[in-house]
Design a protein around this nucleic acid. Structure first.
Lengths: 189, 189
DNA sequence: TACGATACGGAACAGCGTTCCGTTTAGCAA
DNA sequence: TTGCTAAACGGAACGCTGTTCCGTATCGTA
């Protein structure tokens, strides 16, 4: 678990850091689909260097957002322990997830893009967040607050989809629609 | 309303028909983002001819799916008249919309793509379907079945988003999630 | 200081959308 | 039938992507 400082050359470590900073800036300015050349230019390196450090675009995106995804994953257990009910915890956790997605230009769209470009990104999100979602969903089913039968994968996929384009369209409030979706989960009495 | 046979050259009319058929086939085989060159090759014409008949890709997509969008739009009034309640009519109409989207490879994604590539497509869908959605939504609010405050644009945008990737992912059932969203619309008693 | 492994940079290639213009052809008039 | 012109065609060419590849530069060390 400790941050293993890989015994690589100093310039390689420097460039990796520069690339992470440049990518973060480029993602904010132009979305996660920012041209590789732009990112390379921002970092002051050649495109070859980008691909050497991050073989696929997904690797770069994962590296940039890893901390925030980890934080979201870890928040699950905390919420379940602290909120008034499992359903409330689930709702709050989904809010965190939505806030993360809508503030990252184009990330939600990339997450579900058809091309195999972002498969590793998709896989990473699933690996880290799906177990948390499953735990929260199971708890809410067990407490009788929501109807059973929906898998966490579908829920999170649906929530992710609802976040697509939430930036860049002032007339569309993803949070509100996600709220309706979560409301629809409640057990019909 | 009558089909005005434009007084153009015979080869132009022939090629337009061939392009529509070719595009429909290409969309089925490779989605609505099928390369222009592929469509041109299927139709046996040059790429220049594609752009002459359909200046933007959106024009081509609209032309291919126009009939089905019209049918969906027209179904709104029928459902409102025939279903047991406005909410039931709304639900059935949304089902029609979802069925249309999920069976058209990549159409939902294109509808909300960030690039200005499909703006005209977006606009066409809005022009034809938004009034219908507004009517159904208003009726369901008036009948007291659903909570007020959600604009038809947001609802349809959300539904469209939920349909993204519904093909090509067997583990994701867009219809179910749309159902939950519609359920979430019900007035909380 | 010299050397080898490591890493770099950017030219080069492939696939896409889009434009542009020389060539072909349909339709008509003589 | 022939000739003419406007309409339409085809595809080369351009620009912008991602991605690969290899000659060159640099780091770390002996």
């Amino acid at each position: 678990m400790a941050e293993q400082a890989a015994p690589r050359r100093a310039d390689a470590r420097r460039n990796e850091k520069a690339l992470l900073d440049a990518a973060a800036a480029a993602f904010v300015a132009a979305g996660v689909e920012a041209p590789v050349r732009d990112i390379a230019a921002r970092a002051g390196v050649g495109v070859g260097t980008v691909y050497r450090h991050f073989p696929t675009r997904a690797d770069l995106v994962v590296a940039v957002y890893r901390h925030q995804v980890e934080a979201c994953a870890e928040a699950g257990a905390t919420l379940l322990a602290e909120e008034a009910s499992p359903y409330a915890a689930l709702a709050r956790w989904i809010d965190l997830f939505v806030d993360f997605l809508v503030t990252k230009h184009g990330l939600a769209a990339a997450l579900h893009s058809d091309g195999g470009q972002f498969d590793a990104l998709h896989a990473y999100f699933l690996d880290r967040l799906l177990p948390v979602g499953t735990t929260l969903l199971d708890a809410a089913v067990a407490s009788g607050e929501i109807r059973p039968g929906l898998r966490a994968y579908e829920l999170m996929r649906g929530v992710g989809n609802l976040c697509i384009g939430a930036d860049s369209d002032p007339g569309y409030d993803a949070r509100r629609l996600v709220g309706l979706l979560i409301a629809g989960l409640r057990r019909a009495d």
